[in-house]
Design a binder for these strands. Structure first.
Length: 438
RNA sequence: GGUCCCAUCGUCUAGUGGCCUAGGACACAGCCCUUUCAAGGCUGCGGCACGGGUUCGAAUCCCGUUGGGACCGCCA
């Protein structure tokens, strides 16, 4: 008979959900889902000065955005609540008093401090790091309850984890050094010690602990940059763990099926934006078209582009023509702007490179193009090839000017596909603007 | 400084004594495809930090050195 896995993610609401926290939450979630256990969300707001309700809200919504749903938490309740430390003060006091009563802790002013034995070797088995031992001499007596009546982190986590029946403590490697202190509390209270699994830290490109000063650090920063939850989830899962069999691109369900805590490695991982971009792009390519359209809309809006009178089929097809171009929604929105409006095209291309001679050479071709009986890619490509052949020109001599006039860029999806999709009248309008058609 | 942890291509990783003249992915370079850029395909560049052991045999085990990181709060 095996115990039901209960894990928790316990952020303190003193900032948005950052990448490191998301990584920890993700691995907890993966383990809970893999083992058919419960994922608990607990808010560690015992630092009343820095904790805010707003931050708590953004952390919760950040997790929802990433698809990390929890079974028990401050918003949905559960059998082990309350789920905010600020609402559990009496519990901490009860246990702290108990230790004082048994002579294992003492008062100093309003504070309660635990006696730390000086002759013990504290040993624990970590699922990721193996056995770790620290001599108790190196630990000073530790404060359990602060003078203001709130519990310290090391005391509160233990009381919470035990009273919430957490049996797997999965958290960042920076907590390894706290673990012995916590074990002392477990021992003093006579509680069973949970399984510990510390996760390698995520480093910035400078190989230092990821911090605010290194640009985007909250998951919402990445969302606003155009990364999608599937991409971030996949990329984060790759840090410290691998699915095996050279499988690097996967969705939530695949990751859940393959995840194993004992396969987590110890080495710290650098957060590499380039790879994030690649992984995100792979998920962008796999996205359901309708959802992709829904997700990209805000980014068009940011560019000042409305969906205007375009129907859904037109927009869907426009994104389809991008064929994997763009690593983020933001890039996709930029790359497709000319489908929504001629405005940005005019803004970046003035046609001044077109001499009268060039216009004279190109105009007849564009006239013929606009007269085409069937308005589609093949007909345009055929015409262009024949025309180029007869005039001793290269296909690109015709394609590039058209590309500039239609998109305002030197790169774009296949230009005849673009022209076909834009429609004959819109193409005529743009060519006329640049004096390339009558 | 003290305590603890880590160490495979630039980066993410596979690898748990022989299958490793170390595999994959990102990035980079080149080629193919081609109306451009992507995408896709192919090729290339590039690594077991160093030194000692143990062993018939070490990327894999042990020791040391070096390098990196984390923590040393009545913050979490």
């Amino acid at each position: 008979m095996t115990e039901t896995v209960r894990v928790r993610f316990a952020p303190s609401p003193t900032g948005a959900l950052h990448i490191g926290g998301a990584h920890t939450a993700l691995f907890n979630w993966l383990w809970a889902r893999r083992m058919g256990g419960s994922f608990i969300l607990r808010i560690e707001d015992s630092d009343r000065q820095r904790s805010t309700e707003a931050f708590e809200k953004t952390i919760l919504s950040g997790m929802r955005w990433l698809g990390l749903d929890w079974d028990e938490g401050p918003d949905c309740g559960g059998d082990y609540g309350p789920y905010r430390q600020s609402e559990r003060l009496d519990i901490y006091h009860r246990y702290a008093e108990e230790l004082v009563g048994r002579g294992l802790a003492y008062r100093e002013g309003e504070a309660i401090i635990q006696h730390v034995p000086q002759d013990r070797t504290l040993l624990f088995e970590d699922i990721v790091y193996g056995s770790i031992e620290i001599k108790s001499e190196t630990i000073k007596d530790t404060v359990l309850i602060k003078s203001d009546g709130t519990p310290t982190y090391n005391f509160a986590v233990v009381v919470d984890d035990h009273t919430m029946a957490i049996n797997y403590v999965i958290r960042g490697e920076d907590h390894i050094i706290n673990t012995p202190k916590q074990i002392l509390v477990y021992d003093a209270l006579g509680w069973e010690i949970p399984h510990f699994a510390h996760l390698p830290m995520i480093l910035g490109e400078d190989k230092k602990k990821l911090s605010k000063r290194q640009g985007a650090t909250s998951v919402y920063d990445y969302r606003d940059l155009g990364y999608i939850p599937e991409g971030i989830f996949n990329f984060l899962a790759l840090l410290g763990w691998s699915a095996g069999e050279d499988k690097e691109i996967f969705d939530r369900d695949e990751a859940t099926a393959l995840f194993d805590l004992s396969k987590v490695i110890k080495r710290k991982a650098v957060f590499d934006m380039k790879k994030l971009g690649f992984v995100n792009q792979e998920h962008l390519k796999r996205l359901d078209p309708a959802r992709r359209l829904e997700l990209i809309s805000p980014f068009w809006k940011d560019l000042g582009l409305g969906k205007g009178n375009f129907d859904e089929a037109y927009l869907l097809r426009a994104l389809d023509l991008l064929e994997g171009r763009g690593q983020t929604l933001k890039e996709m929105a930029e790359y497709s702007d000319f489908f929504l409006s001629f405005g940005p095209v005019k803004a970046r291309y003035d046609g001044k490179d077109l001499s009268d001679e060039t216009r004279a050479v190109l105009a007849p071709f564009f006239e013929a193009l606009l007269e085409l009986e069937t308005w589609n890619h093949d007909a345009m490509a055929d015409l262009a090839r024949h025309w180029a052949g007869e005039q001793g020109m290269k296909l690109k001599d015709l394609a590039m000017p058209l590309r500039w006039a239609l998109t305002g860029r030197k790169v774009s999806p296949g230009i005849f596909e673009v022209a076909a999709h834009l429609g004959r009248e819109e193409v005529r309008h743009r060519l006329r603007h640049y004096g390339l058609a009558g």
